[in-house]
Amino acid sequence: MEALTLLYWAFDSLLGLCLLWLAWRALASPDLFKAIVLFFSFGLLMALAWVRLNAPDVALAEAAIGAGLTGALLLAALARLESIEEPISPGSNGGETDIHDR
């Protein structure tokens, strides 16, 4: 029993630290595509955190809406941003507008 509690403690602290780190990385990443992928992983880990807090309803909503659909909407917005930016500045990819290359 003692060992199990210790394991839960370790898991929870690892989860919390991962969440903080992912949130920071998602905010600080200059590459928007990378930031969105980090946001996805943040949402999935957040769902796990809700499960650990005994809130399966919120966990379901977080996984489906927070991670899944919001991420899809962000990706859609990013695709739109690129298709808008391309015709304006053809070939000049320098400075901050340089989003990423796939």
């Binding site: 399966p56 309803d57 966990a59 379901l60 489906a64 809406i65 899944g68 659909l69 899809a72």
Partner: peptide, 25 residues
């Protein structure tokens, strides 16, 4: 299933709706 099970267990309209939305996407 999520919609139906929402009456007695975790689930409900928003979760079911977002799964449906994912199918649409």
């Amino acid at each position: 299933y999520l919609l139906w099970v929402g009456a007695d267990a975790p689930g409900g309209a928003f979760q079911a709706g977002s799964v449906l939305g994912a199918a649409g996407v």
